[in-house]
């Protein structure tokens, strides 16, 4: 196993390199530049800006310079938020998104996992349908509907919670965003866990265990949950990486200073360096989480072996 992990870590280097290269040229190929607005810049002014940010060099030279900067850990200045570097923007946004995202993922794992397992154990009963219908709500109602609804109920009408704002991370301000983020994940986890649990319950080893006369719950706890979590973990790897890097919809509606907006707003603004920065950051997370998933796999199911 340690040698496998080492191998994977080494393979991260070319992966990141490919990500950077692909993203760099993809982003530059899109029409529009960071300084285009409806107030068209006079040519001299545009030339000054391009010179300042080295955008007037040949693309390959820019690419080389960018790679060198990234190697030194410098993601460059943001083109949109011109008082900040990309490093600073990521450093200020990520802790916020991480906190909300981790809370949402944990909530989803506990609630969704439990719901899925209960539904599987009571397959095709009213409990099953009830639990799963509730879980489905999280998928069927998109978060741009859920979030304003929650604000309307809990902030405007009941006045229990603030309607938005981060307020330096006060607990009150995080409740609605976390719930909004978690709803979708609860639905996913519940559905996947239910399906997987049903598979497990029908597998030979559980049947064997049952035949041996072990009591039901003991079988579930001892032999059921671990394999049932396999597809959940498989889903949660990249999903967790996505959730902890923020959601643009949730951030804009609740006014939260997270990282998620940069993926979308950065792209709309053609903030080349900021988009590249969050892409690389996200790339690292994806690689890390997928590696973690594969390690957890081997632990959950001893039959899984990597060579």
């Amino acid at each position: 196993m340690p040698s496998y992990i080492l191998k994977r870590l080494l393979s991260a280097i070319p992966t990141i390199f490919v990500i950077i290269s692909l993203a760099f040229f993809l982003i530059r190929a899109a029409p529009g530049g960071p300084f285009d607005t409806d107030r068209a810049l006079p040519p001299e002014v545009e030339a000054n800006l391009n010179a300042k940010y080295h955008l007037d060099d040949p693309l390959v030279v820019q690419y080389g310079r960018y790679l060198w900067d990234v190697l030194r850990g410098d993601l460059g200045p943001s083109f949109q938020y011109r008082d900040f570097t990309v490093n600073e923007l990521i450093a200020s946004g990520f802790p916020v998104s991480l906190r909300l995202g981790l809370s949402a993922v944990l909530l989803a794992m506990v609630i969704g996992g439990a719901a899925g397992i209960i539904a599987a154990l009571r397959q095709n009963t009213a409990t099953d349908y009830g639990v799963m219908s509730f879980a489905m709500l999280g998928i069927s109602i998109p978060n741009f509907v859920v979030a304003p609804l929650l604000i309307m109920i809990f902030a405007v009408n009941l006045g229990w919670l603030p309607a938005g704002g981060w307020n330096d991370g006060a607990f009150k301000n995080t409740i609605l965003p976390i719930v909004s983020l978690a709803l979708l994940q609860v639905a996913f986890v519940a559905r996947i866990a239910r399906g997987a649990m049903i598979e497990v319950l029908r597998s030979n080893y559980i049947r064997t265990a049952r035949a041996k006369g072990l009591p039901g719950w003991q079988i579930i706890l001892k032999h059921g949950i671990k394999p049932a979590m396999l597809p959940v973990v498989s889903y949660l790897g990249p999903a967790a990486a996505a959730v902890i890097t923020g959601s643009v919809v949730i951030e804009q509606i609740y006014g939260i200073p997270g990282l998620g907006r940069h993926f979308v707003q950065g792209a709309l603004n053609r903030d080349y360096t900021l988009v590249m920065g969050v892409v690389i950051f996200y790339g690292f997370l994806i690689i890390a989480f997928n590696l973690l998933v594969d390690i957890i796999y081997a632990w959950l199911d001893p039959k899984v072996r990597y060579s």
Partner: peptide, 18 residues
């Protein structure tokens, strides 16, 4: 000065007293 990117959410925030 608050960042309020979503106009609808801004109105809700105003109504909730924020």
């Amino acid at each position: 000065y608050y960042v309020t990117e979503d106009m609808n959410a801004e109105v809700l925030r105003y109504r909730a007293g924020g």
